[in-house]
Write a protein that binds this DNA or RNA. Structure first.
Length: 312
DNA sequence: CTATAAACCTGCTGGC
DNA sequence: TGCCAGCAGGTTTATA
């Protein structure tokens, strides 16, 4: 699942490859993927826009466009971006009468150069949205499960769009004081608090587990019971695991791919996520898996005890 | 405020 | 081998 590191890594790749390019037109293959505005306005407004910049806010990828517009892309569970070199065609032989009637698979893509095709063709399945660039390249939004959302907004909409998002964990605003404020406001488990995007933006299931392991805090600990030292360590853990994953190109357990269709390497570096049954890398105890708020949660029962060390 | 569940979706896994 | 139930999870919305 794309969380902050995966979105950041994609943003960096996009920044190096498509800033300055022009979108000549867009295709929509699944109506609900487009969250805003309606289809007709979207197709008219997106045409002939220059891509002026690429940003990220939490798990949102943002493309700044000419004319004070921007695209927001939230990939949710299985969404990916794929940049195809020139020479790729959308297969029209299977084109249906209703352009929005592509259900499970999305349209097929084929390349003139078959050698290029083999490395990309798997990733072109499940295309929900396609941006045709003036230089012949195509930017695809793919999403098997269709949970992700793409929106086109004007500059003035931005503040309202993100008013509920918490601090950026890799920004200067993410201080221990700020994290404390978010944690103390809730009387819920600390893992649940970390998944709340108002507490900190961009942390999802993988990095919540990894950060709690780093700080040696049990995921079920009440968020308002953490000591100042624990909060500080947790802040450090969040920054560390997110930064480390960006360096490794993100975590690919199932669906995440980068702009070129490549898997990220960070799954080789996780400490607890999906490591249940394996020995803890710190102490050797067996990693456990429990359910917290309907999400699988992985932790080391020895390194992350529920009772505070030295207490009683 | 907190908790729970359903909805959105499809690929995958495990049981029979 | 094949069918089917159940699971996975980010976010929103509804309900208790």
């Amino acid at each position: 699942m794309p969380e902050l590191p995966e979105v950041e890594y994609t943003a960096r790749q996009l920044r190096a490859s498509i800033v300055g390019a022009t979108i000549c037109q867009a295709h929509v293959f699944w109506r609900r993927t487009l969250g805003h505005p309606d289809l007709e306005d979207f197709l008219v407004q997106i045409a002939e826009r220059r891509i002026a910049g690429v940003r990220r806010r939490g798990k949102f990828l943002l493309l700044d466009l000419s004319g004070d517009l921007f695209l927001s892309i939230h990939r949710r569970m299985t969404g990916n971006l794929l940049l195809l070199p020139p020479g790729w065609c959308i297969d029209t032989t299977l084109q249906q009468l209703d352009p929005l009637a592509w259900n499970t698979r999305g349209p097929s893509f084929h390349a003139q150069n078959s050698a290029v095709e083999t490395s990309y063709s798997r990733e072109t399945e499940y295309c929900r949205l396609c941006f045709d660039l003036a230089d012949g390249r195509r930017l695809l939004y793919t999403d098997p499960r269709k949970f992700g959302r793409v929106g086109l907004w004007s500059r003035e909409d931005e503040q309202k769009l993100f008013e509920d998002l918490g601090p950026e964990p890799l920004g200067e605003e993410f201080t221990s004081a700020r994290l404390t404020e978010g944690l103390m406001r809730h009387r819920i488990g600390v893992k649940q608090a970390l998944l709340n995007q108002r507490v900190v933006a961009g942390v999802g299931n993988i990095y919540a587990d990894e950060a709690l392991f780093y700080a040696q805090i049990h995921p079920s600990r009440r968020s308002d019971s953490l000591t100042p030292d624990e909060v500080q360590l947790l802040r450090e853990g969040i920054v560390t695991v997110l930064s480390r994953s960006i360096e490794h190109g993100g975590t690919s357990f199932n669906d995440y791919r980068d702009l070129w269709g490549e898997a990220g390497d960070n799954y080789n570096h996780v400490r607890v996520y999906q490591q249940d049954g394996q020995p803890c890398k710190r102490c050797g105890a067996i990693i456990e898996r429990i359910m917290i708020a309907q999400r699988s949660t992985h932790f080391c029962p020895h390194c992350q005890p529920l009772t505070i060390k030295g207490d009683q």
